[in-house]
Simulated assay, not measured.
Amino acid sequence: MSLTTMIKEDAIPFLEYPSPNRNDKTRKQCLIFFITGNPGLAAYYIPFLTTLRQLLNERESNPSSNQAHHIYSRNLLGFSDHDHTPTFGTTYTTPSGETLTTHPFTLEDQIQSITSTLLTLNTPTSFSSIILVGHSVGAYIATEIFHRFHLSLSPSLLLTSAILLFPTLTNIADSPSGQKLNLIRTTPFLNTYTHHLAKSIVSLLPTFVLRSVLTNIMRFPPHALNATLEFLQSKDGIWQAIHMGKDEMATITEEKWSEELWQLQHDSQGQGGEKFYFYFAKKDHWVADEVRDAFIEKRQGDKRGRTKVTICEENIPHAFCLRHSETVAEKVRVWIEEITG
């Protein structure tokens, strides 16, 4: 974690949709942990998670069901002014006389923090299975967490499967939007001042103007409007998003995971469904077509791999959480049913 920015774990905003059968001892308790994209506000996904909860309630109401599915999601670090102290850019002197400046959180910070939350959630309940669902860079975080527990000889989390929505897993800087963000990262002036410029412009606009732009021009639905206003008007949200985005360009490059990651472990042979589900857009401004196609070809060439790849045929955009939550929730429900049996 950042050495100069203190995390306030109990102040990280979260969403929780527990199973109505959470106290039924005869059922297997399954945690579905959703990891957001960037900007990392869980509020963007309220319609998606609410719909998924309703669909899983229907499944659990079936007399033959022996599962209880718990849904949990939380903000990524730095997107709430309450989850860290002091604000980014604060300079102070330590008792030893060293001058330090606080900085936004990196992608590695996010991976460690999500892992810590998973371990905390698992302590009182001890879930019989955990399904990670990740969107965009959240898919990368989910995959990296799987990788780290895959290497552990005695994993403390029973990670079952991962459902990766519009995943940015390799060479993100080759995508159309990635090229623009990478230009900012590699241009000294832009790298240093872009977040200041962006924040200055937003700060000049009254709330009613921002609301009008988001509603009438960008056509954001109410949940996305509220989340975006919260994000833009926070002290550190814009800096965190840009800083993390630049770190993604430097970190998410060539595939670094071994083929064994995509295969079932010996103690997971009774698992239903696949280990990894990939849901790609037909056209995605954060995923270059050739990068996606090369990744899919590699997965299909792995005869021992337990992966399923779907390319969206409904032209759902990368930011599905704005207007296509219900459609994607239906697909995720099907994959969860395959996994849990």
Rank of each mutant, 00 (worst) to 15 (best):
R59V: 12
Q110D: 05
K25V: 15
L76S: 14
H82I: 08
P20N: 09
W239N: 15
L107W: 00
E144P: 01
E16N: 10
N62T: 10
E313L: 06
L214K: 10
D109I: 03
G138Q: 07
I35Y: 00
V332G: 07
P221D: 07
T160H: 04
L190H: 01
L205K: 05
D302S: 07
F127M: 13
F208A: 14
F127G: 11
D109R: 07
T87K: 11
L190T: 08
V137K: 05
T170E: 14
S212Y: 09
E337G: 07
H103Q: 14
I336M: 03
N75F: 00
V291A: 13
T207G: 03
Q67V: 10
L225E: 12
Y45H: 03
G245L: 00
P221Y: 03
N315H: 05
D247F: 01
A288L: 03
S268E: 14
S64Y: 05
E313A: 12
L225G: 07
W286R: 11
F276V: 10
T228E: 01
G89P: 00
E144N: 11
E326M: 07
H196Q: 15
F14K: 15
L183A: 15
I12T: 12
I163Q: 06
F146P: 02
L55Y: 01
Q263N: 04
L52Y: 03
S61P: 02
T192M: 08
N226C: 04
